[in-house]
């Protein structure tokens, strides 16, 4: 298990858009129960894809700028970025194998 690091409005550009490796961003908020349930799955994947995909999480309450820039209207939402562009979007709950497929697609 690997805990994804926090990214913020201030660090998003450097953490995600300028990243050399693909990045999975987990959009969450403290009041969102289902987001807490997605976290362990994301942590398992973070371990399995270590070194190949970077995993970060963004608190949409504290970082409204990025959340609104990407039109996040539903959480949990996972976005996969490659070369500064969105390469995959997952809204709501999906099986772990589906998430893995989205990551394999950008590698």
């Amino acid at each position: 298990m690997t805990h994804p690091a926090d990214t913020t409005d201030a660090t998003f550009d450097a953490d995600v858009l300028q990243s050399d490796t693909p990045v999975l961003v987990d959009f969450w908020a403290p009041w969102c129960g289902p987001c807490r349930m997605v976290a362990p799955i994301v942590e398992e994947l973070a371990g399995e894809y270590e070194g190949r995909v970077k995993f970060v999480k963004l608190n949409t309450d504290e970082n409204p700028k990025i959340a609104s820039q990407f039109g996040i209207r539903s959480i949990p939402t996972l976005l996969v970025f490659k070369g500064g562009e969105i390469a995959g979007q997952i809204v709501g709950f999906r099986p772990k194998s589906d998430l893995a497929k989205r990551l394999d697609a950008v590698l």
């Binding site: 129960g33 949990p76 979007q89």
Partner: peptide, 11 residues
């Protein structure tokens, strides 16, 4: 879905 249509108000 995800742009205003939702099945989870709590979320």
């Amino acid at each position: 879905v995800g742009k205003g249509v939702s099945y989870c108000a709590t979320c």
